[in-house]
Design a protein around this nucleic acid. Structure first.
Lengths: 229, 229
DNA sequence: GAGGGGGTATGACCGGCGTCATATCGACGA
DNA sequence: TCGTCGATATGACGCCGGTCATACCCCCTC
């Protein structure tokens, strides 16, 4: 079991640069836990007693606005760390996380994590890198979200998805990510009705098709034109 | 000069937890530089060869959206680190920074900074803390910006300012921060016309007054009511 | 088969706010 | 003193998109 756990750790962005020794030490204090679809990994305000890393499945990290609606901050997949920020600082989670589907995670107790940091400072450099990457992405999200037409934001969102995880296919670019209209709306900061309207229109115009397990970008040129609007 | 520079370093959020020895070492490689109002500290895409920390004055960090308008990501004052993120990762600055007024900064060359990190791992713990704090604030800004009426966002913005730096006075709470209508608009993600309209209305209704060197919250209760709208 | 719940879809309404245009005022320089 | 430029201010217009309401479909449970 420890062997596979180490393999898993090597695939995570945050731990991959560790030396085999460090990874072994980490594996010895880590545990595995599964979450059913819809289960909460943690809620905003909870004490951050564990560092979570996704092995398989998908986790949605979101924050409830002062007015009660949700904003999806991030969707984590295999290899991504969840709530690492809060753990580093020993402060309560600033957002909530739920499993979008059956999800398996590696849990590292905060205490053990800190002890490892103390004894193996080399680990910290990799963590600094991961943190800064997320900061950059968040600043981009910020610039993206404020202002602009919803349809243009949606177009840019799909183009970014395509760049991140698009798979070329005969009939277009496949995005292996099944998001509901509601989640789509939360990602780009609008309502479910508007996201449904846009997706319906795009489906009629053969720009983006919704499939069982993801989306297909059919007319990428049109999307790029929309993104500039 | 080194003596005062060390004093300055002790007041910065990012360096305050360093041991006196570490601070001394940092001071020995740091330099001081002043920027005139409107001067660029750096532009988006520039290589990040220096870590900047504000001593006095104010710096605006902003990002130009795909559509050409600006979003102010942060306004830094004395003690704040500017562009630290990019320096940690040795990647180009993800945003631009200009001085809002005459501003003095401490500059630490990236090379020297890294050498210090190598030799004194204790410094890194403090940096982790600073980074996570900014991440949390950014997620809050994200949740704040998406959706909601502009007037409500503006109200929340002023209330947050009051909590951060408000000074009680006979006629209300004074905010010693002179922001133009344009900068106000950028902070909450709207246009200059709308921010002018709201401020005009609030001025007529005696809710917030604009003064030469800041704002005065006259009717805080009304602001709090607006913030919930 | 009835009933309920969740996701998707579509129409009607209308109000906030972005856009364009214009006016005023103060600062600054020729 | 005039002209220019930037910041502030205000009106008119129009439309995107939020809100409400309803309907349909699929899956599950009883």
């Amino acid at each position: 079991m420890d062997g596979s756990l180490e393999d898993v750790l090597r695939q995570t962005t945050i731990f991959r640069r560790l030396s085999p020794d460090d990874r072994g030490r980490l594996a010895s204090v880590a545990t595995v836990r599964t979450f059913a679809r819809g289960a909460r990994l943690f809620s905003e305000g909870d004490p951050s007693d564990h560092l979570l890393t996704v092995i398989n499945g998908r986790v949605k990290v979101f924050k409830t606005t002062p007015r009660g609606s949700d904003v999806i901050l991030e969707i984590f997949g295999p290899g991504d760390p969840v709530g690492a920020v809060a753990v580093y600082e020993s402060r309560p989670y600033p957002a909530s996380a739920v499993a979008l589907e059956a999800t398996t995670c590696v849990l590292v107790p905060r205490q053990s994590f800190f002890e490892l940091l103390e004894t193996h400072p080399t680990m910290i450099r990799g963590l600094l890198g991961g943190l800064t990457l997320r900061l950059v992405e968040l600043t981009n999200r910020l610039a993206e979200l404020s202002g602009g037409r919803v349809e243009a934001r949606m177009a840019r969102f799909f183009l970014k998805l395509a760049a991140d995880m698009g798979q070329p296919r005969a009939d277009g670019t496949f995005l292996p990510l099944a998001l509901s209209r509601q989640e789509l709306a939360d990602m780009i900061g609008t309502t479910i009705e508007t996201s449904i309207r846009i997706m319906s229109r795009w489906s009629k115009d053969d720009i983006v098709r919704t499939e069982k397990d993801g989306f297909i970008l059919v007319d990428r040129a049109r999307l790029e034109a929309l993104a500039l609007t």
